[in-house]
Structures are given as C-alpha cells and as structure tokens.
Design a protein around this nucleic acid. Structure first.
Lengths: 253, 253
DNA sequence: TTTAACGTTCCATTTTTTGGAATTTATGCT
DNA sequence: AGCATAAATTCCAAAAAATGGAACGTTAAA
C-alpha cells in the first residue's frame, strides 16, 4: 500500500495506532515509524490535542481517543458508494461466472476502475488501474459510439489503429460502421480484437444531469472464447443491463 | 470541538468527507473549509494518492475510498475503546440474561462489532466474518428504517429478499410498511425471520453531528423463542435503551 | 457560440517542520 | 535512599514544505 508521506504522516500514525494491540510508548512509536523522538513527540502532541489520541492513566503510553471512534463510525455510516459498486460487480460475477469490470474512458484509453475476477482457473487477470486502447475493447467502442460525434472524431484522430490480433479492426470506416450499430444496440462486443481468445461484452452506465444522458462508465464481462463464444456471451446481456441500472442509481441519487 | 490545525489539516478534511452525505466537488470543499482552491487541490491529491479518498467515476467529485473503511474497522476493533463498549454489553447480558451484540451496517449486511454470550462470560468475539443480511435481522431493519430514504432504496435494491425461515419477510411492500413502524417506535424485532427459534430485539445508537442525528450502530439481544417470546422480549426494552444511551454518550459527550 | 465557473499548474514567499544536542524527568537496581 | 540509566521533553537554527495569488486550460451552462 502506498506510504503516507508529507503532510499525511501524522495520519499514518493514526493508522498505526489503530492497528496496535496495546498502547505504545513514545520511544516504541518513534522506533517503529523510524523518526527522531522530538518529531514523534510533536506528532503525538498534535493528535492528543486534537482529541484523536489520549494517554493511558500512567501518562506514558498512547491509545486511541473518543474522537477517533467517532470518526470511524462516521466513515462506516457514510460508506462510500464505491464499495457498494464493488458488491454489485461481485453479484454479476456470481451470476454469469466470468470476470467483470467497471471502466471509464480516459483520452484514447479505457481504464479499469474496479474489477472482480471469476473463480475459474483459466481466466484473464487484469488489475485495477490498467489501461487498454479504446478502439479495440468493448467498453472503449461503447464510449466512442455514445459520445458526441465531434468528440468521437477527436478520439479517433488520436488513436493509431494498430493490429493487435487477427480480428483487430484497423480500418476507420469499418470501425465507424460498427460504432453506429453499437449506438443503436446499446451494447458492444470485443471479438478477440485486443487479445486472441478473449471475448468481451460491455453495456453503458448513464448519468442523467437535467435532461441530458451521458455514458460516464461501462460495465463489462470478459471470458475466454472457449467458454463463451460471441453468441453465447450475449445471453448474459440482461444480467449486465440490470446491474448497469443499479450502478447508475449509485451515481445519480 | 478542538480545531485541527497545522499538519493535521488534511485529517480534518478526512473528517469532513466522512460526515458528508454526498460526494463533493473541489470548489465546494474549498469553500466549506475556507481555503484557496490550490490548497484544497493539493490536500485532495495527497489523500487520493494515499488511497483514502477517490474520485467518482465522472472524475469531478471526491468520496471515501476503501482504505478509509479499513481504517474505520481498525479503529473500532482497537482495544481501549472496544473494552469500554464490551463492558457495557456485559452489563446488559447480566441484566437480561441473554446474548447481546453490537452491530454496524456494512452494505446490505450487518456485521458484529462485538458480542457477549449469555453462557460464556468475558468472551470477545469480534469476527469480521460473522455477517447477517440486513432485511431479516432486527438491527438490519433498524438501520434501514432510520437511514435517508434514498440510501434505503439503494440498499433494498441490492438485497435479494430470500426466504430463510417461514417468517422471513420477502415482500418488499410488507418490509417497507414494517420499516415505517420501526422508524416510529425506535426499536426493531426479528421474529424468527433469520433463524427458526431465534428472536431478537434491537435499539439504535445515535451519533449527533451538529443538529443531525444518525444511527451509526445498533445494540441487540438475541434469545431462543422458548425462553423469551416476541412479547416477553419487549420487557427488556428499557434495559437496552439505557445501555444504548450510555454507548451513544461515549460517542457524543 | 459565448460566457462563466471550475479545475489545474506555476512559483516566489512565507511558514512549518525537522532533528541534533542539551535538559529535565522518571525508572530500575543495589 | 542513592546512583545509574533510560525515557521524555525543550530549544533553536537549518532545511524543507505548504501556501495562495495569478494565470492558464477545460468543461459545462446559457
């Protein structure tokens, strides 16, 4: 996990204290955080003054104070909708039995916002944060199909249509024709265009602001073609669409 | 309340975010914290890089991230404060003679923060794994009844109302009607809805932020219907309510 | 299309933080 | 009790970091 640096170092201390089994002394904490004692002294003093930490009755050890507990309840009470989204993804994986991911468009690439892997031994493991070119992925094509044409042309202009597999669409005219279909059907397929043996089905997640609907994210499942071919994967469309509806609700509320 | 200053200002921001109902934009946060936009930009960037905050899919708003939830559980699981709560639970068990537990809502499920068994005194069983669906447990229904309707709908939408016993409420309309009663009465019953032979009574623990009260945890007792039936268990209500008051006091003082 | 608001970058200035050394306080041992 | 030892605290000049006004892109609303 990313280390807390700079201004956040006292926050790292709070995290350390929360993980601790027993109250600890200044010297112990200074040693474990690898900072000089005067520094730790100041940090502890600040957190104590803030009411996040308090000293044990003997005055030599530090432990969490009520304000930290209040913060914890606040966090749980306001449980980020991202966790709710993750659960929705998990449910999709349970229902379709294949890996599922939530993506957004970032320039000419699609980035994985969240991802839940299927339990099959044979599976494609992407990780959260990884990126894939838009023109050869289901979600990417979906975004392009549903965005204003001017913007789409800009994205296309910046994309070099590189051949990644035998099925990759490298002709812009062919791609545009497919985008028109996708725009009509409201789903997109990746027919082994990015990676041989990998098929993918994506549906849009719309956000409504005022009277304008825009596709802000995409929900997709990925499967080895040996388990689900292009036709079979389409049977999962209803499940995906329903989940996308639920996901949209977490965005608009 | 003591103001967080100096190095702790980003921590104050985390507290603000935890208290927020909906994800907020940079401009809103800058205004509410009364700092220039570049400063807020840096703070948010630091917390985002640390994995404590993240942006909403549209990239324009910020909300809590999984690391914040982990921190919250870590704090609640921590000894000194949990010991105080545990003692209160023990007192309840002594008074009512039945098992008692403290729960928080986590998505569509209720998780046991602490539990004291009537048979085995002095036993702490914080099992991160022991979870129960919200729709068929006393505490779960309590949480749903007392949360903002929009959030409640989101939780309901995700809950599959599965029949676990003859008494499980699987009709959403019936459930909503009961939630209205619970909201009025400030207690909830589990009438053998989760497990045959097991009845349960739950009362809310409120946290007050400003003038807003929110139910952040629930205190409940469980009993075999043979020892306490639905009517008899209600005689324990005053004991529970008093203990809940005491627990709330440790949060709000 | 125009306009306004929002988000982001830049950088000289100001303000903190930092940590070695010294001082004070507490603890353990005989 | 008295000494030795370790921990906690204070001090302060050097070093590092945060700050925020101004300017620049970018996105959304009229």
């Amino acid at each position: 996990m990313n280390e807390l640096t700079g201004t956040l170092k006292p926050l790292a201390l709070l995290e350390t204290m929360a993980a601790l089994e027993h109250p600890a002394t200044l010297a112990e904490l200074a040693a474990s955080a690898d900072v000089p004692k005067p520094t730790m002294h100041r940090w502890l003093g600040a957190l104590e003054a803030a009411g996040l930490l308090q000293r044990t009755p003997d005055g030599r050890r530090y432990e969490l104070a009520p304000r930290a507990v209040r913060l914890a309840f606040s966090i749980l009470n306001n449980r980020p909708s991202s966790t709710i989204r993750h659960e929705i993804l998990q449910r999709v994986v349970e229902q379709v039995g294949e890996s599922c991911n939530l993506t957004v468009l970032d320039g000419t690439e699609v980035t994985y916002l969240d991802r839940v892997e299927s339990q099959w031994p044979l599976r494609i493991t992407f990780q959260q944060g990884s990126r894939v070119p838009a023109y050869c992925s289901a979600s990417g094509k979906l975004f392009m199909a549903l965005m204003p044409p001017a913007k789409r042309d800009l994205v296309l202009q910046q994309s070099r249509l590189e051949r990644l597999t035998d099925n990759t669409v490298v002709d812009q005219q062919v791609l545009l024709a497919e985008l028109a279909d996708i725009r009509r059907d409201r789903y997109a397929l990746d027919r082994e265009e990015f990676m041989a043996g990998l098929v993918c089905l994506a549906v849009p997640i719309f956000q409504t602001k005022g009277r304008i609907k825009s596709c802000v994210a995409a929900l997709a499942i990925q499967a080895p073609v040996t388990r689900l071919n292009q036709t079979e994967i389409l049977t999962k469309l209803p499940v995906l669409q329903e989940a996308a509806e639920t996901l949209a609700a977490t965005l608009n509320e």
